[in-house]
Simulated assay, not measured.
Amino acid sequence: MRLPLLALTLVAAPALAESPLPALIAEYETGPAYIFQNDGRYGPTGTAYEADDLNQKSNLYRSQRIALEARLGERHGLILLWAPFDITTRTTLAKDIDFRGTVFPTGTVVDSRYLFEGYRASYLYRLINGERFTWELGASVQIRNALVDLSAVDGSRYTKESDIGVVGAFKTRLRYTLPSRVWTGLEADALSTFGLLGNTTGGIYDVALTLGVPLDAKGDVSAYARLRLLGGGADVKRRDIYNWGNFGFALVGVQADLVSLVERGLREE
């Protein structure tokens, strides 16, 4: 462990040695994802289709996330997150699919790409800041980079729907730490428009249950296992767009407090 700590010290010490932040927590997770639902319809004459129609339920897909959390005093926290999800499947269509006026006939071999990439910033206020239990409330803003396309393998047809949008959500996080420093956490982002925004109906949710195990005596570095449910979508009538999806993730990850690691590295020099 000494060599990685020394390398981290050399790289990060100039920026973090004098940092006023109590903690700067980096996190990475990865694992398989499964598509429970992915319904779509695009264009005024578009065909409604499901995940099975594009062979999206036949496999698991690798997923990953990277997050950085700055603790701003005892009560405040700011989290930056990158959450990509990009899959491509191939199938022989069992029915005609009209996608934005381009018709892919039954029997066409098609590649389908589904990209849903999120860049999210969250603020959390710690309502309860106990020795073992913490509870935080706040809000998130996410930039959504989305793309859905269909292409015939023989090159005869291609069409797509792409969108960059901004989505907001309420956020909460709970964490309980045992005397052994083993911890469990529940984190959720969620919002629904309830049909209040003109002729657009939509919603999002992102819920994760985590079990963490410390990798050092102070608990500055932890490995964890996490189950995540992610879903949402929108029915935007003015653009003739409908998409709704629900995805499940089984993840492993690691998180580390960079401030504590750098301070420890400096003490060991």
Rank of each mutant, 00 (worst) to 15 (best):
P84G: 03
I79K: 14
F99Y: 05
F85G: 07
Y61P: 05
A70K: 10
L72N: 06
T108N: 05
L93C: 01
A83K: 08
R100S: 11
E69T: 15
F99W: 03
K95F: 00
L81E: 14
L68V: 08
G101W: 01
L60A: 12
D98A: 09
A83E: 15
F99P: 01
L68M: 13
Q64P: 04
F99D: 04
I97R: 04
T92L: 14
N59R: 10
S63P: 05
L60H: 12
Y61E: 14
H76I: 08
I87D: 02
G73K: 11
G101A: 00
H76C: 09
R62M: 06
S63H: 09
L60Q: 12
A83S: 15
H76F: 09
E74R: 13
A70T: 07
L72H: 10
L80A: 14
P84M: 12
A83F: 01
R71I: 06
K95D: 12
S63R: 04
F99L: 04
G73N: 07
L72W: 15
D96G: 02
R62G: 15
I79L: 09
I97V: 13
T89S: 03
Y61A: 06
R62N: 13
V103H: 07
F85I: 10
I79H: 07
R71D: 15
K95Q: 10
G107Y: 06
R65Y: 06
G77Y: 10
D86V: 15
G101E: 01
A83C: 08
L81A: 08
I66E: 11
D86G: 06
I66F: 08
F104Y: 10
D86Q: 10
D86R: 14
G77K: 13
I79W: 07
V103Q: 01
L78W: 11
A94S: 13
